[in-house]
Amino acid sequence: MTSASISNSNLKGALCATVAAMCFSLNDVGIKFLSDTYALHQIVFYRSLIGILTFALIIMPISGGLKTMRTRLLHWHLARGLCVVAANSFLFLGLASLPIADAVAIFFVSPLVIAVFSVIFLGEHVGPRRWAAIAIGLLGVLIMVKPGTSAFQIAAILPAISAALYALMHIIARRIGGTESAGTMTFWILISFMTVSATVGLAIGDGRFASDAPEVLTFLLRAWAPLDPADIPIFVMLGTSGIIGGFLISQAYRIAEAAFAAPFEYVSMPMAVIWGVVVFGTFPGVSTWVGIALILGSGLAMIYLETRRRPAPRPDTKVYSNT
């Protein structure tokens, strides 16, 4: 693969990651808006139903039709599916308990974790300057989480756990992306969401564990509620934006270097601040702004360092991918 091809793939992946992040931001605000009424697994189940319909009407026709569902790497798809289900669950629990800007900012340690995982699992190169950027981003998370102080909330740990699982999910996507299409990866993610949410709903959907649960788990253990017709447009938005975002993010990490594509998801951060102010009437405090600045700055620094680290080859020179 030539250097020009790598750069072109990275740019396409960055565009996919940016649009996907916008879709996921819509999901975040929708989930938080519904979190006072419905159980988490109920929302995920309805979102998945709409997502399957969207997949059949939009994604499947452009991804090869029925063959999109075929794979020889089912074990990897199931592992990736479990990662994304768990990642979403931890993030959504955090969204229900924290201001949306705080939860999203803490979650955005994920591009930094992806960079670390890309070294461990993919053999991609991360130089000392990018390690320094990663350290700065982690410092931003610590400032926001405030471990060891009276301001610490256990809910602040949830988006961080989500970030690690999310990073692992995309490392798997990068690993199998050479043979598996974004459509195939998206389909098996949908199946994972449907299976887990339906199973959890059948097991605890009556809400029998909710009364004695800690406040941070109420969203997870609440009983299923009758669907309010006024909320149907929100569920439709969740299903469509979720599946489109899932397809685009799978495509991003399938074709681009993981450490390059990841920081472009930061577009969700300013959107989270806007949603918090406009929809929920919350405005970030000083520590949140400091944390956001450090996390965002570290991500942007990684993009800058990435664009400078690979020298331009001679016209007839080929540079081969390390994956």
Rank of each mutant, 00 (worst) to 15 (best):
M185G: 10
S48E: 06
I161Q: 09
V319G: 00
Y320I: 09
G13A: 01
C16I: 00
T18G: 02
V273E: 04
S211F: 04
F152D: 06
V279W: 09
P284E: 00
G177M: 01
A133K: 10
V44F: 10
P311N: 04
A79R: 05
A164S: 14
W224R: 09
R308L: 12
I234F: 12
P284F: 02
S287D: 15
F219I: 09
S7A: 13
E124P: 01
L93C: 12
K318C: 04
S118N: 07
N8Y: 06
S25Y: 11
D231C: 09
A293N: 02
V277D: 01
G276D: 03
T199D: 03
L95W: 06
T186E: 07
V290N: 02
L138H: 02
T37V: 13
P311I: 06
W275R: 08
H77R: 14
A182H: 01
T37I: 13
K146G: 03
H125F: 12
A223C: 04
R175K: 14
D212W: 07
Y320A: 09
V119M: 05
S9V: 00
V141A: 11
A86Y: 05
K67Q: 15
G127L: 09
C83Y: 06
I154G: 08
L34Y: 10
V119C: 03
L190Q: 13
S181E: 08
A182T: 02
I189R: 06
F283G: 00
L168Q: 08
R70C: 13
P128R: 15
I234L: 15
A293V: 01
M194C: 07
G207T: 07
I106R: 08
V141W: 00
M269C: 03
L11V: 08
L142P: 02
